[in-house]
Protein backbone atom coordinates (compact mmCIF):
# COMPACT_ATOMS: atom_id res chain seq x y z
CA UNK A 1 0.00 0.00 0.00
CA UNK A 2 1.37 3.40 -0.96
CA UNK A 3 2.07 5.65 1.98
CA UNK A 4 -0.66 8.25 2.31
CA UNK A 5 0.39 11.88 2.43
CA UNK A 6 -1.85 14.43 4.06
CA UNK A 7 -1.04 17.74 2.40
CA UNK A 8 -2.79 20.93 1.29
CA UNK A 9 -3.06 19.65 -2.26
CA UNK A 10 -4.97 16.50 -1.26
CA UNK A 11 -7.18 18.41 1.20
CA UNK A 12 -7.98 21.06 -1.42
CA UNK A 13 -8.90 18.41 -3.98
CA UNK A 14 -11.12 16.60 -1.47
CA UNK A 15 -12.87 19.81 -0.37
CA UNK A 16 -13.41 20.90 -4.00
CA UNK A 17 -14.86 17.48 -4.82
CA UNK A 18 -17.21 17.28 -1.84
CA UNK A 19 -18.26 20.94 -1.61
CA UNK A 20 -18.75 21.08 -5.39
CA UNK A 21 -16.73 24.28 -5.72
CA UNK A 22 -13.04 25.19 -5.96
CA UNK A 23 -11.40 25.20 -2.55
CA UNK A 24 -8.03 26.37 -1.30
CA UNK A 25 -6.50 25.24 1.99
CA UNK A 26 -4.51 27.07 4.63
CA UNK A 27 -3.08 26.37 8.07
CA UNK A 28 -3.00 22.58 7.70
CA UNK A 29 -1.43 21.06 10.79
CA UNK A 30 -1.54 17.80 12.66
CA UNK A 31 -3.05 18.03 16.14
CA UNK A 32 -1.46 16.32 19.11
CA UNK A 33 -3.44 13.87 21.16
CA UNK A 34 -5.44 10.91 19.97
CA UNK A 35 -3.01 8.01 20.15
CA UNK A 36 -5.17 5.80 17.94
CA UNK A 37 -6.54 8.24 15.33
CA UNK A 38 -4.96 11.10 13.43
CA UNK A 39 -6.58 14.50 13.54
CA UNK A 40 -5.65 17.39 11.31
CA UNK A 41 -6.80 20.99 11.54
CA UNK A 42 -7.16 23.19 8.44
CA UNK A 43 -9.07 26.12 6.98
CA UNK A 44 -10.86 25.81 3.65
CA UNK A 45 -11.69 28.77 1.43
CA UNK A 46 -14.56 27.60 -0.76
CA UNK A 47 -15.69 29.88 -3.60
CA UNK A 48 -16.57 33.31 -2.17
CA UNK A 49 -17.76 32.01 1.20
CA UNK A 50 -16.11 32.74 4.54
CA UNK A 51 -13.20 30.47 5.52
CA UNK A 52 -14.45 27.19 6.96
CA UNK A 53 -12.63 25.95 10.05
CA UNK A 54 -12.40 22.17 9.69
CA UNK A 55 -10.93 19.03 11.20
CA UNK A 56 -9.97 15.85 9.36
CA UNK A 57 -10.15 12.67 11.42
CA UNK A 58 -8.61 9.58 9.89
CA UNK A 59 -7.13 6.15 10.56
CA UNK A 60 -3.34 6.26 10.50
CA UNK A 61 -2.93 2.61 9.52
CA UNK A 62 -5.47 -0.12 9.33
CA UNK A 63 -8.03 -0.02 12.09
CA UNK A 64 -7.09 -1.33 15.54
CA UNK A 65 -10.55 -1.99 16.86
CA UNK A 66 -13.43 0.35 17.41
CA UNK A 67 -15.78 1.53 14.71
CA UNK A 68 -14.72 2.45 11.19
CA UNK A 69 -14.71 6.11 10.20
CA UNK A 70 -17.88 5.77 8.13
CA UNK A 71 -19.79 4.48 11.16
CA UNK A 72 -18.40 7.29 13.31
CA UNK A 73 -19.44 9.83 10.64
CA UNK A 74 -23.03 8.57 10.65
CA UNK A 75 -23.08 8.34 14.43
CA UNK A 76 -22.01 11.98 14.76
CA UNK A 77 -24.72 12.96 12.32
CA UNK A 78 -27.36 11.05 14.34
CA UNK A 79 -26.11 12.51 17.63
CA UNK A 80 -26.20 16.02 16.15
CA UNK A 81 -29.81 15.56 15.00
CA UNK A 82 -30.72 14.35 18.49
CA UNK A 83 -29.37 17.58 19.99
CA UNK A 84 -26.21 16.08 21.51
CA UNK A 85 -23.40 18.68 21.39
CA UNK A 86 -21.07 17.25 18.73
CA UNK A 87 -19.20 18.77 15.77
CA UNK A 88 -21.27 18.89 12.59
CA UNK A 89 -19.87 16.47 10.02
CA UNK A 90 -19.18 17.78 6.50
CA UNK A 91 -18.12 14.83 4.33
CA UNK A 92 -16.77 11.32 4.38
CA UNK A 93 -13.51 10.77 2.49
CA UNK A 94 -13.93 8.70 -0.64
CA UNK A 95 -11.51 6.45 -2.50
CA UNK A 96 -10.84 9.26 -5.00
CA UNK A 97 -9.56 11.57 -2.22
CA UNK A 98 -6.53 9.33 -1.70
CA UNK A 99 -6.30 10.09 2.01
CA UNK A 100 -7.44 6.75 3.40
CA UNK A 101 -10.45 6.26 5.67
CA UNK A 102 -11.68 9.37 7.42
CA UNK A 103 -14.08 12.27 7.47
CA UNK A 104 -14.14 16.05 7.73
CA UNK A 105 -16.11 17.92 10.36
CA UNK A 106 -16.41 21.47 11.68
CA UNK A 107 -13.72 22.64 14.09
CA UNK A 108 -15.13 23.67 17.47
CA UNK A 109 -13.11 26.19 19.44
CA UNK A 110 -12.37 25.36 23.06
CA UNK A 111 -10.13 23.35 25.35
CA UNK A 112 -9.82 19.56 25.53
CA UNK A 113 -6.70 19.21 27.69
CA UNK A 114 -7.99 17.86 31.03
CA UNK A 115 -5.32 19.44 33.22
CA UNK A 116 -6.16 22.89 31.86
CA UNK A 117 -9.89 22.29 32.24
CA UNK A 118 -9.35 21.19 35.85
CA UNK A 119 -6.87 23.87 36.86
CA UNK A 120 -6.97 27.03 34.72
CA UNK A 121 -8.76 30.02 36.22
CA UNK A 122 -10.50 30.57 32.88
CA UNK A 123 -12.61 27.42 33.42
CA UNK A 124 -13.54 27.99 37.05
CA UNK A 125 -17.18 28.70 36.24
CA UNK A 126 -17.28 25.80 33.76
CA UNK A 127 -16.01 23.37 36.40
CA UNK A 128 -19.13 24.01 38.44
CA UNK A 129 -21.29 23.07 35.44
CA UNK A 130 -19.49 20.06 33.98
CA UNK A 131 -20.92 17.32 36.21
CA UNK A 132 -24.57 18.12 35.61
CA UNK A 133 -23.85 18.66 31.90
CA UNK A 134 -22.27 15.20 31.77
CA UNK A 135 -25.41 13.74 33.34
CA UNK A 136 -27.62 15.59 30.86
CA UNK A 137 -25.58 14.75 27.77
CA UNK A 138 -25.24 11.07 28.77
CA UNK A 139 -29.02 10.92 29.18
CA UNK A 140 -29.44 12.49 25.71
CA UNK A 141 -27.06 9.99 24.11
CA UNK A 142 -28.79 7.06 25.80
CA UNK A 143 -32.19 8.30 24.61
CA UNK A 144 -31.30 8.26 20.88
CA UNK A 145 -33.56 5.86 19.03
CA UNK A 146 -31.69 2.83 17.72
CA UNK A 147 -33.58 3.28 14.43
CA UNK A 148 -31.58 6.46 13.77
CA UNK A 149 -28.19 4.80 14.22
CA UNK A 150 -25.80 3.01 11.87
CA UNK A 151 -25.30 -0.70 12.55
CA UNK A 152 -23.41 -1.11 15.82
CA UNK A 153 -22.44 -4.24 17.74
CA UNK A 154 -24.27 -5.13 20.95
CA UNK A 155 -21.64 -5.37 23.66
CA UNK A 156 -22.91 -6.04 27.15
CA UNK A 157 -20.59 -6.66 30.09
CA UNK A 158 -20.16 -10.36 29.47
CA UNK A 159 -19.47 -10.11 25.72
CA UNK A 160 -16.80 -7.50 26.46
CA UNK A 161 -15.28 -9.59 29.27
CA UNK A 162 -14.88 -12.44 26.79
CA UNK A 163 -13.44 -10.07 24.17
CA UNK A 164 -10.87 -8.74 26.64
CA UNK A 165 -9.83 -12.27 27.58
CA UNK A 166 -9.37 -13.08 23.90
CA UNK A 167 -7.40 -9.85 23.31
CA UNK A 168 -5.11 -10.60 26.26
CA UNK A 169 -4.61 -14.19 25.08
CA UNK A 170 -3.74 -12.86 21.63
CA UNK A 171 -0.83 -10.86 23.06
CA UNK A 172 0.24 -13.80 25.20
CA UNK A 173 1.43 -11.66 28.11
CA UNK A 174 0.10 -12.93 31.46
CA UNK A 175 -1.65 -10.39 33.73
CA UNK A 176 -2.76 -11.93 37.04
CA UNK A 177 -4.22 -8.57 38.17
CA UNK A 178 -6.40 -8.34 35.02
CA UNK A 179 -7.49 -11.95 35.57
CA UNK A 180 -8.59 -11.13 39.14
CA UNK A 181 -10.54 -8.18 37.75
CA UNK A 182 -12.14 -10.20 34.97
CA UNK A 183 -13.18 -12.90 37.44
CA UNK A 184 -14.77 -10.26 39.72
CA UNK A 185 -16.59 -8.66 36.78
CA UNK A 186 -17.77 -11.98 35.36
CA UNK A 187 -19.33 -13.04 38.67
CA UNK A 188 -21.23 -9.75 39.01
CA UNK A 189 -22.10 -9.08 35.36
CA UNK A 190 -25.49 -7.35 35.06
CA UNK A 191 -28.10 -9.34 33.15
CA UNK A 192 -29.65 -6.29 31.40
CA UNK A 193 -33.22 -7.33 30.85
CA UNK A 194 -33.88 -3.98 29.17
CA UNK A 195 -33.20 -3.18 25.54
CA UNK A 196 -29.60 -2.09 24.86
CA UNK A 197 -28.95 1.62 24.39
CA UNK A 198 -26.37 3.60 22.45
CA UNK A 199 -23.21 3.73 24.57
CA UNK A 200 -20.62 6.37 23.60
CA UNK A 201 -17.84 4.14 24.90
CA UNK A 202 -15.26 6.89 25.58
CA UNK A 203 -17.33 9.48 27.46
CA UNK A 204 -14.75 11.18 29.68
CA UNK A 205 -12.70 14.23 30.54
CA UNK A 206 -10.30 14.60 27.59
CA UNK A 207 -12.99 13.95 24.99
CA UNK A 208 -15.00 17.07 25.83
CA UNK A 209 -14.40 20.43 24.19
CA UNK A 210 -14.92 22.91 27.01
CA UNK A 211 -15.22 26.69 27.16
CA UNK A 212 -16.25 29.12 29.91
CA UNK A 213 -19.81 27.75 29.77
CA UNK A 214 -18.86 24.10 30.05
CA UNK A 215 -19.14 21.32 27.47
CA UNK A 216 -19.46 22.50 23.87
CA UNK A 217 -18.84 19.20 22.16
CA UNK A 218 -18.36 15.48 22.80
CA UNK A 219 -15.62 13.91 20.66
CA UNK A 220 -14.17 10.48 19.88
CA UNK A 221 -17.13 8.22 19.16
CA UNK A 222 -14.74 5.54 18.09
CA UNK A 223 -15.71 3.00 20.77
CA UNK A 224 -19.49 3.45 20.44
CA UNK A 225 -21.64 0.34 20.70
CA UNK A 226 -25.01 -0.79 22.01
CA UNK A 227 -25.16 -1.97 25.59
CA UNK A 228 -25.70 -0.98 29.20
CA UNK A 229 -25.86 2.84 29.43
CA UNK A 230 -24.33 2.84 32.92
CA UNK A 231 -21.07 1.83 31.19
CA UNK A 232 -20.65 5.48 30.08
CA UNK A 233 -21.17 6.79 33.62
CA UNK A 234 -18.73 4.31 35.17
CA UNK A 235 -16.10 5.07 32.51
CA UNK A 236 -16.43 8.78 33.26
CA UNK A 237 -15.43 7.98 36.87
CA UNK A 238 -12.32 5.87 36.11
CA UNK A 239 -9.39 7.23 38.12
CA UNK A 240 -7.21 7.93 35.07
CA UNK A 241 -9.77 10.47 33.85
CA UNK A 242 -9.62 12.45 37.11
CA UNK A 243 -6.14 13.66 36.15
CA UNK A 244 -4.87 13.99 39.69
CA UNK A 245 -8.11 15.20 41.33
CA UNK A 246 -8.66 11.74 42.80
CA UNK A 247 -11.30 12.76 45.33
CA UNK A 248 -13.67 14.03 42.62
CA UNK A 249 -14.69 10.83 40.83
CA UNK A 250 -16.52 12.44 37.91
CA UNK A 251 -13.69 13.49 35.61
CA UNK A 252 -11.85 15.17 38.48
CA UNK A 253 -14.58 17.83 38.65
CA UNK A 254 -17.65 16.37 40.37
CA UNK A 255 -19.33 13.93 42.72
CA UNK A 256 -21.08 10.69 41.82
CA UNK A 257 -24.24 11.93 43.55
CA UNK A 258 -24.55 15.03 41.38
CA UNK A 259 -23.94 12.98 38.23
CA UNK A 260 -26.49 10.32 39.14
CA UNK A 261 -29.09 12.87 40.29
CA UNK A 262 -28.91 14.83 37.02
CA UNK A 263 -28.88 11.67 34.97
CA UNK A 264 -31.93 10.29 36.81
CA UNK A 265 -33.85 13.56 36.44
CA UNK A 266 -33.48 13.59 32.66
CA UNK A 267 -33.42 9.90 31.75
CA UNK A 268 -36.00 8.91 34.37
CA UNK A 269 -33.66 6.00 35.08
CA UNK A 270 -32.33 5.57 38.59
CA UNK A 271 -28.74 4.32 38.74
CA UNK A 272 -27.35 3.29 42.13
CA UNK A 273 -23.75 3.64 43.30
CA UNK A 274 -23.26 -0.12 43.18
CA UNK A 275 -24.02 -0.20 39.43
CA UNK A 276 -21.73 2.79 38.96
CA UNK A 277 -18.95 1.01 40.85
CA UNK A 278 -19.34 -2.11 38.71
CA UNK A 279 -18.77 -0.08 35.56
CA UNK A 280 -15.92 1.86 37.13
CA UNK A 281 -14.13 -1.44 37.82
CA UNK A 282 -15.02 -2.50 34.28
CA UNK A 283 -13.67 0.77 32.86
CA UNK A 284 -10.43 0.44 34.79
CA UNK A 285 -9.91 -3.00 33.27
CA UNK A 286 -10.94 -1.76 29.82
CA UNK A 287 -8.44 1.11 29.92
CA UNK A 288 -5.74 -1.31 31.07
CA UNK A 289 -6.45 -3.62 28.13
CA UNK A 290 -6.49 -0.64 25.73
CA UNK A 291 -3.08 0.48 27.04
CA UNK A 292 -1.72 -2.99 26.34
CA UNK A 293 -3.37 -2.98 22.91
CA UNK A 294 -1.77 0.36 22.09
CA UNK A 295 1.63 -0.85 23.26
CA UNK A 296 1.27 -3.79 20.89
CA UNK A 297 0.07 -1.55 18.07
CA UNK A 298 3.59 -0.13 18.28
CA UNK A 299 5.32 -3.48 18.87
CA UNK A 300 3.67 -5.27 15.95
CA UNK A 301 4.55 -2.39 13.64
CA UNK A 302 1.00 -1.30 12.81
CA UNK A 303 1.87 2.23 13.99
CA UNK A 304 5.38 2.85 15.30
CA UNK A 305 5.15 5.56 17.98
CA UNK A 306 6.91 6.40 21.23
CA UNK A 307 3.55 7.51 22.63
CA UNK A 308 2.03 4.08 22.01
CA UNK A 309 5.14 2.33 23.32
CA UNK A 310 4.89 4.34 26.57
CA UNK A 311 1.23 3.34 26.99
CA UNK A 312 2.33 -0.30 27.19
CA UNK A 313 4.00 0.50 30.51
CA UNK A 314 0.95 2.34 31.83
CA UNK A 315 -0.81 -1.01 32.14
CA UNK A 316 0.59 -1.32 35.68
CA UNK A 317 -1.31 1.83 36.75
CA UNK A 318 -4.63 0.27 35.82
CA UNK A 319 -3.64 -3.02 37.44
CA UNK A 320 -2.91 -1.09 40.64
CA UNK A 321 -6.24 0.77 40.53
CA UNK A 322 -8.07 -2.46 39.79
CA UNK A 323 -6.58 -4.19 42.85
CA UNK A 324 -7.44 -1.16 45.01
CA UNK A 325 -11.06 -1.29 43.79
CA UNK A 326 -11.38 -5.06 44.31
CA UNK A 327 -9.96 -4.75 47.81
CA UNK A 328 -12.27 -1.90 48.84
Amino acid sequence: MARIRIDEEHCAAACSRHFGSDATIANLRRLSGGASRETWSFDAMVADGPPQELVLRRDPGSSIGGTDRSTEFHLLRAAHSAGVPVPEVRFLLSEADGMGAGFVMERIAGETIPRKILRDEQYERARGLLTSQCGEIAAQIHAISLDDLPALPVQNARTQINQYRAVLDGFGEPHPAFELGLRWLDERAPTNAEEPRLVHGDFRNGNFIVDENGIKSVLDWDLAHLGDPVEDLGWLCVKSWRFGNSDLPVGGFGTAKELLDTYAAISETAVDEEQLRYWEVFGTLKWGVICELQGFTHLNGLVRSVELAALGRRVAEMEWDLLELLDA
Binding site: P176, A177, L180, R313, A316, E317, E319, W320, L323
Partner: peptide, 26 residues
Protein backbone atom coordinates in the same frame (compact mmCIF):
# COMPACT_ATOMS: atom_id res chain seq x y z
CA UNK B 1 -11.76 -17.81 44.24
CA UNK B 2 -11.79 -19.03 47.84
CA UNK B 3 -8.14 -18.08 48.49
CA UNK B 4 -8.14 -14.38 47.53
CA UNK B 5 -6.27 -13.48 50.72
CA UNK B 6 -3.31 -15.58 49.56
CA UNK B 7 -3.15 -14.46 45.97
CA UNK B 8 -3.92 -10.72 46.29
CA UNK B 9 -0.76 -9.72 48.24
CA UNK B 10 1.42 -11.59 45.74
CA UNK B 11 -0.21 -9.95 42.70
CA UNK B 12 -0.15 -6.56 44.40
CA UNK B 13 3.57 -6.86 45.17
CA UNK B 14 4.29 -7.59 41.50
CA UNK B 15 2.23 -4.61 40.34
CA UNK B 16 3.96 -2.40 42.93
CA UNK B 17 7.35 -3.48 41.55
CA UNK B 18 6.21 -2.70 37.98
CA UNK B 19 5.07 0.77 39.08
CA UNK B 20 8.34 1.44 40.90
CA UNK B 21 9.88 1.25 37.43
CA UNK B 22 7.08 2.48 35.16
CA UNK B 23 5.78 5.39 37.27
CA UNK B 24 6.82 5.54 40.94
CA UNK B 25 4.78 8.74 41.42
CA UNK B 26 1.64 6.67 40.93
Amino acid sequence: DSRQAEVLPCVRAAVRAKLEVANPNY
